[in-house]
Design a protein around this nucleic acid. Sequence first.
DNA 1: CAAATAGTGTCTATAAGACATTATCAA
DNA 2: TTGATAATGTCTTATAGACACTATTTG
Lengths: 261, 261
Amino acid sequence: MSGQGDSTESGPVGVMNATERGEAEFLRRYDASVYEKPAFTVDLVLFTVRDEHLHALLVQRAEHPFKGCWALPGGFLDPRRDDSVDACAARKLVEETGVRAPYLEQLKTYGSCDRDPRGWTATTVYFALMASDSVRLLGNQEDARWVRVQGDGVGFALAFDHTRILADAVERLRSKLEYTHIAVHLLPEEFTLPELQRTYEIILQQPLDKSSFRRRVMQADMLEELAGRQRDGSGRPAQLYRFRDYDRQTFFPRSISRHAR
Amino acid sequence: MSGQGDSTESGPVGVMNATERGEAEFLRRYDASVYEKPAFTVDLVLFTVRDEHLHALLVQRAEHPFKGCWALPGGFLDPRRDDSVDACAARKLVEETGVRAPYLEQLKTYGSCDRDPRGWTATTVYFALMASDSVRLLGNQEDARWVRVQGDGVGFALAFDHTRILADAVERLRSKLEYTHIAVHLLPEEFTLPELQRTYEIILQQPLDKSSFRRRVMQADMLEELAGRQRDGSGRPAQLYRFRDYDRQTFFPRSISRHAR
DNA sequence: CAAATAGTGTCTATAAGACATTATCAA
DNA sequence: TTGATAATGTCTTATAGACACTATTTG
């Protein structure tokens, strides 16, 4: 971003000034193990919409602690395999679902001495959105299941502080839905406007006005009209669209009112 | 929240079922040290407004790595002293500034094998807002200084990935200013509407319409009118207000346009 | 009085909500 | 044709932007 190079950061290749010699010496002697470290994990809140409901992926814990309890998928970060926290989240996502690159966003980090009976742990939580038809659960000997989300959770307590984490993720999802287009990541590549609107209605838990919804989406100029049309039982078939740019994060100019009637 | 108690989570006091006996046994044998852990730090982006400019607190590093470079204040989390990541951030804030409880919010966690030459580290970054007159820098043998923020940074490269982190924090601050009232935390307890508006203009880097601004703020019903009035050189003195509820996080119904003229 | 700053009133543009109307399909 | 759903049109309402105007102080 800003940053015209600061001379203390790195000198010409092959030449070391006094500061750099000092740093090289320091690093040679440095022993990371002298510091006490909390355990560090990465957990995932995976969302999808199916059967007219928002679902989150939960796994039943095969081992202690909380053996038998349902929990968010995730686990220890492995510094030898994971070059970054983001990479660790992506790895766990693939291991769990086989999905390559849906929408994946860091939610928050939860860390304390009492959230895990084994001691001080910190977990960085990511939430991901995916089309339900894109997923084939891989379930590494864990029992993984899509569980319906109602209100701010699944209706029963989860392991660790995962009940709270799931509630935070649901709130973030609802909140972002009002001013971004992330809901497209819950649909297959080709979808219709009524399907997109239905997705919003399911997650926000309220009906939206068709005309206003279409106006918003079209004004944002995010969708590309496709050749085909989609039939869905009776009635006029709907126009197919695809999201124009799955990488760019786009925003609505105004938020969808959650108080609409 | 949701959560009617799940029977696997905890049984009656003093009685253990098979699952609980298994868990107790597991925990007795559990040795946390077998897992390789990344180093875990907490860093702070402290913002204040003074001399008509946004400033961030930076410290000059006394030790390797990046000795002599400017960096965000922060450091290793100490599991023996810090009961949670939040508590660690609060502790470091007090150690650095002596300020008790201004606005403190978790920004994001950055972790990778290459952000620190000592090896794999993760840092959870918080950003804080405070009134510049409330701060007396304590500077534990470190050289701490308020540095003017222009654009998305301070104009020179910081240690580690702190240039990027600062840019993210500035963006988040600007973004949140548009739909929340957090700017009040940059002012002393008693302030005037022109002062509040000026704070917004300084951070958003654009003039705002006086009438629209006042309308927004008053409609949000966040401010309490105080008895006194404040004189500030020439002209009509301005009404003093105080923020009604420093705990509650409140929101504007609509965002302040960043495209205003 | 003028200058300066605080605070109010009012018009307009824009976008959302509500809802009626038209379009296109199957049976 | 009817029934169903998609898509469009239009009127109303809410709010932000623009800017003129009034209010209150000092010198």
